[in-house]
Nucleic acid binder design. Structure first.
Lengths: 194, 194, 194, 194
DNA sequence: GATGAATGAGGCTTCATTCAT
DNA sequence: TATGAATGAAGCCTCATTCAT
């Protein structure tokens, strides 16, 4: 029982990863169940053994991606370092996510256009959870005088917006390595909060 | 002849504006020719008198929007004011665009997903033209010592990314007026370049 | 305008008649849009120009059939003849309907399995309207002493049930002509109400 | 061998009863192998160990139900009572069948729509067998002067038709108990044959 | 015997596109 | 110019059926 359940879960994840890839290339509407299945050498009918429908599949893509991101930020937040250090690490983490898992990351951007409320709410909640780790660090930083800003939420959105845009231009094997990008963004974005 | 051509042009623009509206509400795939036509009290068949196909129509939407943006930036660039002033004005202009013409603006973000090369190239070119006005101001500012940064291109992308993200959260009739948003962003984004 | 509307209506009726035929042969679930269209040398896509979806098409089939039947009964009811005469005529009318328009008639039998409440209610209402013409004649007949029964509703259902069953065995070009069937049923069914 | 065969038979019957239930609720096309299996806490794959395919399973449902009905009528026919008494008992039996085993009964009505000739013929034969018990009683009744009719077959069909229709309106827990319905139908239907 | 998994055919529906009028 | 009508490709989804384990 345990074994077969694990197998099931594994297969589901495989499908999700395939879906994430296609959705990123073509967008939600552009991605077809056929193509998602073909990527795994399955037939589209099989997908419905694992997921209720397309919306459900895409929903689970979001959940997977967001949960990963949230866990990572949580770890950073709980370390015993300055808020400036934490924010820098979060920025690095977010950038790495946005670049390395570009495909998955893109999905988080506009869930409203894709989901109905039953599935939209959990996603928005997770999104908030993700953002709130940034908020908490910034807030703490302001409290202890490390950061000097008034508009907490908007600053957070400036940071995230700036970083999310990286996907638009970053090319792996391009002239900048990911570590360089992280460093440059850390430098300029920290100027915003100080 | 001249007259009828003008009429044609006018009708085309009407259709483009309608298309822009629908495309933003529903996305490229979600927008249907039917709906675009209905907005103008036409039937979808008629659209094909003015545009070769859907892709062509959407392409012309891009052109219209980008040309407007470019013209505005050009005017700002040619004024006799400091580069700091210019950059602030460009930021305000871009934000207003992103909020008020949210519909049209979204389309510019990922043209690769929508167009094939014949139409993609002109769009990418105009996008570059648009960005380059920001680049020039920043470059000039650095030259005369108003700005103190090394990574010109990346800074420009940080600015644009931060601003483009506004669409994700800004709600008209929300708690912030557009002028407030412009002011706040001016304040924090100028910290990046200094 | 008037002309084109009439054409539209005519086409709709053509489609309905085709649908009625197929549905009768195969049942609601068994009837496919493809087949309904093929019967008219159309493609299934075209059907959606005239009807919102399959349920809508089938719904309109019901409406058409029921309205015809109701109109006929109404005319009979308003004639200046005895209730016995009226009931006989109604029986003859119902039988002719059940035989000649066998296909259409069958659809009325189990609408609950096919429709959701939005469309089910109008149908049930029309069905009641149809039945009520029988009820009224029987009631009047009882009042004036022509008929001698207590269970009005059940008697009506005995009559309708007996007649609806004709479809199960009647074969055109069989040994009985429709007029003979009408006569025989009149004879035996009138024994029920006396 | 004998034991395992009995087990097999028992399991088959269980499945048939489950199928009968689902088919009545959803109709032939609406009933899915999945649902039939779920009712028995099995998986649909297992059904194919007991039945060749869906048509076969449904076929056996018919056989089971018809055999029951036939046996009951046979017993009535062989009792030492008047033909009037016999017919009344058959009416009561048929009505109880139509109401209590509504599920199964419905399936008998239109076998032509469901089966192909290999399975259709046995079913039609059993149906005839069932009807013939009615015919025999009526015939005997006419011979000995209890009944006074000419059109034997049609009268039988009037009776069966009237009774089969009960399913359309009878509601368990409604205002009439099954015994009342039986009594009322006995009363009015006997008027037909006298 | 039973099942988890996969398949593929077929059904409903949407929509860009075409074309005669 | 405009439109009503039709088309066909493509997408989502269901489900009977199969089969290795």
């Amino acid at each position: 029982m345990k074994l077969s359940e694990k197998k099931l879960q594994k297969k589901k994840e495989e499908i999700i990863l395939s879906a994430v890839k296609i959705v990123n290339e073509k967008g939600y509407q552009g991605a077809t169940m056929e193509e998602i299945a073909a990527e795994l050498l399955m037939t589209k009918g099989s997908l419905y053994y694992y997921f209720k429908n397309k919306e459900d599949l895409i929903f689970q893509c979001h959940v997977l991606v967001l949960d990963q991101g949230i866990k990572e930020l949580e770890v950073i937040f709980n370390r015993e370092i300055s808020n400036e250090q934490k924010l820098k690490l979060m920025i690095a983490s977010h950038i790495r996510f946005a670049i390395e898992k570009k495909e998955t990351f893109n999905m988080i951007i506009k869930p409203e256009k894709t989901f109905h409320s039953e599935q939209l709410n959990p996603i928005l909640q997770k999104r908030n959870e993700y953002s709130s780790w940034f908020d908490q660090v910034i807030e703490e930083g302001v409290k202890v005088g490390e950061f000097k800003i008034k508009e907490l939420k908007i600053v957070r959105m400036i940071l995230l917006g700036a970083m999310n845009w990286i996907q638009q231009w970053y090319k792996p094997n391009g002239e900048k390595k990911i570590e360089e990008v992280q460093e440059i963004y850390e430098e300029y974005l920290m100027k915003v909060v100080k």
